[in-house]
Design a protein around this nucleic acid. Structure first.
Length: 580
DNA sequence: GCCGTTTTCGGCCCGACTGTTTTCAGTCG
């Protein structure tokens, strides 16, 4: 059995980031800190398994020099980095929780720790509530309120995890279990199977196995604590705070167990209600006749739904949001699949904050099965990324078009992700934007506007004739930052009126639009585009998460603009529609 | 700490916004 697996790229990157965070709190040389962050970036986007590389090979990677290569090898060989351990001995690890609060950075954390000996979220909250923060330099009433708000957001998110992270954990745990119990089927259920944007606990169903498989489960190297070990169910807490439950069920209950443990609770209650009204009983073992106790269905999920007079309900729809009525009327939409996507309308290159060249991104998109890709680097307002001004944008566009001519099997479109300024005007002149193939307009600043101001700001951008797509429309960062205040009903209506496409941004911590707003878009006849917002060659893999949102939103291929071929896609853009 | 040399030092993405200031520090992207 695997005992000490080598750390994967993400695990290595996490340690490097932690070193950078701790150095930052210590007030170390900012360039040294950046070097650790760059190194972490390189490792996490590296296509190869970093743990398999020698020190000599490591220094070939960009941003990894002699020192970082040595530290990474040390981590792989010994399981830890002494320098990292020294830092942790010097500063409480809980300080890192504080830096993750919105609006609280390393300087503030250092000040709180030095002046008030605050090192945990609870201590910070107590200090803020008792007004002790106000005595500190640079801290006033508003800063105190900001910290309390950030603490509140943080509390609401605790114990939840991003869908993509949960998926990764599930894959790792399931692989371990399959290795230990080759004859048993393991299926992740619960919110992961429904592809919810965040997941709490991870539930895995073990179908047709022996209770001995729980020995392997609780012995997994990532297990921090065993919460329970029984004959049909065991629970553990993994490092990083994941609770994982494995339930063992007999093959005869396969369908019923899948159905029951996939949920959602609201969907299950509605189904049980239907069963009840027919004189049946539905539970995790099957569907039974109340009078005779005879089994009616339960071996397959299909059979279960069929017995209740419904077509199979895809897990993503099981939220009791009308799917039961639609499935009973045999009227569910044909949901979008990843393989329906033919293009991507949002990505970045090394011209701004992407890592890779136009050519490299094009080849990666092609390898991901796409036939067209819009290059949409940032506009000048995002100075930190080296955002392009009008001249830069047009020069970049000319280059993208020139590269596109030389490529086989993938067509590049010259676009831009143009900032929407706080007043709703665009960051670049209209005559420049009009010369591009498409414009994605996005908000990246002044998130604190009130709802009326923010809505006006976005409506003004939608009204601009050169805007084709509204990028990540609500600006949320999952588990980190709430959406800004905006009236999405008005935004969707305006998008319908002007023919603007709304983006589902597939970045794992954005998924923005969310499922509810995407469904609203569909109902109002607004087209959606599912974008990767890739910043590196590996970034196209996130499209599956955008597709998950679309499926939860009941979207069919015809609702999604980038399921069309490139001509159809271009024809559907606002700038070309208005010419018709 | 990395990188690229005009090879062993000196530069390294920087502007907007906020809240605290009275000229700026911290955070974010």
């Amino acid at each position: 059995m695997a005992s000490s697996l080598p750390p994967d790229n993400h695990a290595i990157a996490r340690v490097l980031v932690e070193i950078a965070d701790l150095l930052e709190i210590k007030g170390e040389n900012p360039f040294k800190i950046r070097a650790y962050r760059n190194g972490a970036d390189t490792v996490s986007t590296c296509a190869e398994t970093v743990a398999s590389l020698t020190a000599a090979e490591l220094v070939q990677l960009p941003g990894i020099g002699r020192d970082l290569a040595g530290r990474i090898r040390e981590l792989i060989d010994t399981g830890a980095i002494a320098f990292h351990q020294e830092l942790l001995a010097e500063l409480p690890v809980t300080l890192l929780d504080l830096t993750r609060l919105q609006g609280v950075g390393p300087k503030t954390v250092a000040l709180l720790y030095r002046a008030l000996d605050i090192s945990t979220l609870d201590e910070l909250e107590a200090a803020a509530r008792s007004g002790r923060l106000r005595g500190l330099r640079g801290m006033g009433e508003k800063k105190e309120a900001l910290i309390l708000k950030a603490l509140d957001e943080r509390k609401r998110h605790s114990g939840r995890h991003l869908l993509a992270d949960t998926h990764d954990i599930a894959v790792a745990v399931a692989a371990h279990l399959r290795h230990a119990a080759p004859g048993t089927e393991f299926v992740p259920v619960g919110s992961l199977r429904r592809q919810s944007e965040t997941c709490g606990d991870l539930d895995i169903l073990a179908i047709g196995g022996e209770p001995a498989l729980f020995d392997a489960f609780v012995g997994h190297p990532l297990v921090e604590r065993v919460l329970g070990r029984g004959e049909t169910k065991s629970s553990v807490l993994l490092r990083g705070g994941y609770q994982v439950d494995v339930r063992l069920v007999p093959p005869a209950s396969r369908g019923a167990a899948l159905q029951y443990f996939t949920g959602s609770k609201a969907h299950n209650i509605a189904l049980r209600d239907m069963a009840l009204s027919r004189g049946w009983k539905l539970n995790e073992y099957g569907l039974f006749d109340n009078a005779t106790g005879a089994p009616i269905a339960g071996e397959t999920e299909d059979g279960l739904y069929e017995a209740l007079g419904m077509t199979f309900v895809p897990p993503e729809l099981r939220e009791n949001r009308g799917e039961i009525q639609a499935a009973s009327a045999r009227n569910l939409p044909r949901l979008l699949s990843l393989s329906d996507l033919r293009g991507d309308a949002h990505c970045h290159t090394d011209a701004t904050d992407g890592r890779d060249t136009v050519e490299a991104m094009a080849m990666a998109a092609k390898a991901a099965g796409l036939s067209y890709l819009a290059i949409t680097d940032h506009s000048r307002a995002l100075a930190m990324t080296g955002g392009l001004d009008e001249e830069g944008a047009l020069r970049h566009a000319a280059r993208v078009r020139e590269v596109s001519k030389r490529l086989d099997g993938i067509r590049l479109l010259a676009g831009i992700e143009c900032d929407i300024r706080p007043d709703g005007t665009l960051d670049l002149a209209e005559d420049c934007l009009a010369q591009l193939d498409l414009v994605v307009a996005s908000v990246h600043s002044a998130f604190g506007l009130d709802e009326a101001q923010m809505t006006d700001r976005i409506l003004r951008a939608i009204e601009s004739p050169v805007v084709d797509v509204l990028g990540h429309p609500t600006g949320r960062l999952l588990l980190r930052r709430d959406a800004y205040a905006v009236d999405m009903a008005r935004v969707v209506n305006a998008a319908a009126r002007y023919g603007v496409t709304l983006e589902i941004n597939s970045q794992v911590d954005r998924l923005d639009l969310n499922d509810v707003h995407s469904r609203l878009a569909r109902e109002r006849g607004v087209k959606v585009v599912i974008d990767s917002d890739a910043h590196a060659q590996a970034g196209f893999g996130t499209l599956r998460w955008g597709v998950a949102v679309a499926r939860r939103a009941w979207l069919s291929p015809e609702d999604v603009l980038n399921t069309r071929d490139v001509e159809g896609f271009l024809a559907g853009l606002r700038r070309n529609r208005s010419k018709q």
